[in-house]
């Protein structure tokens, strides 16, 4: 037999089969393929290694690879399920899937909990909430008296920490979000409803075009 030259497209090491990713997420196969185009762009903006590094994530979010932001860090780390310091293609698709309008509300609530659980202890603690409020004030160039910050944090915490043990567990968080559904508003990206319509420029690839 002669040698067989494959025309399969070149994919990076972290590439996962779009069919499998589509089965696990609200995206269909062509949407996963379209998002791969976005992923390739993001993951090659600084280091072309098929993985999104934190600087690349910051560059995409803020047009500045050096702009640090507590919340962007938390989003990055929550995408980075393997905790190896980069976002791989499968991690990117699975996490974005949670932001899909059709994703289960439960998964959005749990993702938000993980974002706010800064030290990944399984609880949102009072100090973490205060740290986030202070970080946001800093980010927004707002100044509030220390007493006011303490009052806001205390009030929020007393409302959410229904067991009164000084920390918010995931059950308390779910109950708190059910009373305040706007808390997960930013967990839905309407764009993802129909990627191929909203972002036709992503849909340029096919197995043949890519080879």
């Amino acid at each position: 037999m002669g040698c067989f030259l494959s025309k399969r497209p070149k994919h990076t090491a972290g590439y996962e089969d779009p069919t499998l990713l589509a089965a696990e997420t609200p995206f269909n196969v062509s949407e996963v393929e379209a998002l791969y185009e976005l992923f390739k762009k993001l993951s090659s903006s600084i280091v072309d290694d098929g993985r999104i590094h934190k600087e690349e994530f910051q560059l995409a979010l803020f047009r500045n690879k050096n702009k640090r932001n507590l919340f962007a860090d938390r989003v990055f780390d929550t995408f980075d399920v393997k905790r190896n310091g980069v976002i791989e293609f499968g991690e990117f698709i699975r996490a974005l899937g949670i932001f899909h309008p059709n994703a289960p509300v439960e998964s959005k609530i749990e993702f938000a909990f993980r974002l706010y659980d800064l030290r990944q202890t399984g609880f949102i603690e009072r100090e973490e909430l205060k740290e986030m409020v202070l970080a946001l004030l800093h980010e927004s160039d707002l100044v509030l008296l220390e007493d006011v910050v303490e009052t806001i944090v205390d009030k929020t915490f007393s409302d959410a920490d229904t067991k009164g043990d000084g920390k918010i567990d995931v059950e308390e968080w779910k109950e708190f979000v059910s009373r305040n559904p706007s808390l997960i508003k930013n967990m839905t990206l309407p764009y993802l409803k129909d990627i191929t319509l909203a972002f036709p420029s992503f849909v340029v690839t096919s197995e043949v075009d890519d080879s």
């Binding site: 976005l38 995409a60 979010l61 974005l96 409020v133 409302d159 959410a160 706007s182």
Partner: peptide, 25 residues
């Protein structure tokens, strides 16, 4: 009205606005 710290964070932080990822295209 009760000032909810989580609402303040989620609605105001640019770090949560993933739409920028798409706008980079």
């Amino acid at each position: 009205k009760f000032f909810n710290a989580f609402e303040f964070i989620s609605s105001m932080s640019s770090g949560f606005d993933l739409s920028s990822l798409f706008e980079s295209k």
